[in-house]
């Protein structure tokens, strides 16, 4: 089998006391379209371990991360090799549900550390204050003019979902913008 390369494969993870940036490649991502009031939506939530989040800009995390994408649309994110699609299909049965594997659409860059909010704020117009955008929040927006899905995974950690063709550009931009936060104790690893 041919070696599988992620789009920003030439991107080198960096970390310092203040900031850690690394790619999280090849996560399993499923786009889910279903009427939130339907029986199928409840069944899928049950199978995934948490009800589908219906508040705009929120995500839940149980067997897989479920990110709100729209009033009837979610992005289900599993670890590499997980099969959330099988779980969803089994729960949905023959109901009117749209399930699409979009794993190749986006790759994920994780931004972590006390200065992660400062770094993202360089190129994102959203209010990223922890009171507004704390753990459990997600948003589709623009980061440095690239379309991204931002998800707050912890108090200081974010996942940036970016389209594969923009990933190299965004990785370059993040590294450039992170310059001032990486001076202290920077470790670069391959």
């Amino acid at each position: 089998m041919a070696e599988r390369l992620s789009p920003p494969a030439r991107f080198t993870p960096v970390s310092s006391d203040d900031l850690r940036i690394a790619e999280v490649p090849f996560l399993t991502q499923i786009n889910l379209r279903v009427d939130p009031k339907s029986r199928a939506a409840a069944d899928i939530g049950l199978a995934l371990g948490a009800p589908l989040p219906t508040d705009p800009g929120t995500c839940t995390s149980a067997q897989a991360d479920v990110l709100w994408m729209g009033p009837d649309e979610w992005l289900v994110v599993g670890e590499r090799g997980d099969d959330p699609e099988g779980t969803i299909r089994a729960a949905a049965g023959t109901a009117h549900v749209g399930i699409t594997d979009v794993s190749a659409q986006r790759t994920v860059i994780s931004v972590d550390g006390p200065r992660s909010r400062d770094l993202l704020a360089h190129g994102c117009a959203l209010d990223l204050h922890p009171r507004v955008f704390g753990p459990g929040r997600c948003a589709q927006t623009m980061l440095a003019r690239a379309l991204v899905v931002l998800a707050a995974t912890g108090e200081e950690g974010f996942r940036v979902f970016v389209r594969s063709s923009f990933a190299g550009y965004l990785a370059d931009w993040l590294l450039d913008a992170a310059g001032e936060y990486l001076r202290k104790g920077t470790v670069t690893s391959r």
């Binding site: 800009g57 117009a125 927006t141």
Partner: peptide
């Protein structure tokens, strides 16, 4: 109405 206030560019 869903996402709250956002920049015009979006």
């Amino acid at each position: 109405p869903w996402c709250g206030p956002r920049d015009e560019a979006e």
